[in-house]
């Protein structure tokens, strides 16, 4: 990437390309991707004997 090209990150370090790509999907497709990713990471934790993380009760919102 050259200096003249637009940065993929905004001033807060947010990857704008990821947002634009995600917005092209339907809500159901976004959920499908989330579930697939989270189940993938859960499987990696299971294979490595790492306990499933629980949120702190104060975190719910």
């Amino acid at each position: 990437m050259t200096d003249e090209e637009e940065s993929p990150y905004d001033e807060h370090g947010v990857d704008v390309t990821l947002i634009r790509s995600f917005l092209k999907l339907t809500p159901a497709e976004r959920l499908e991707r989330l579930v697939a990713f989270m189940n993938f990471t859960a499987e990696i934790r299971r294979l490595n004997g790492i306990e499933e993380p629980h949120r702190d009760p104060q975190d719910a919102s």
Partner: peptide
Amino acid sequence: VVGGIAAVAQGVPIDTLDLD
């Protein structure tokens, strides 16, 4: 529906472990 799933459904690319 609130929280992470609500955000993802509206196009926010984040992950979450639970449904609120």
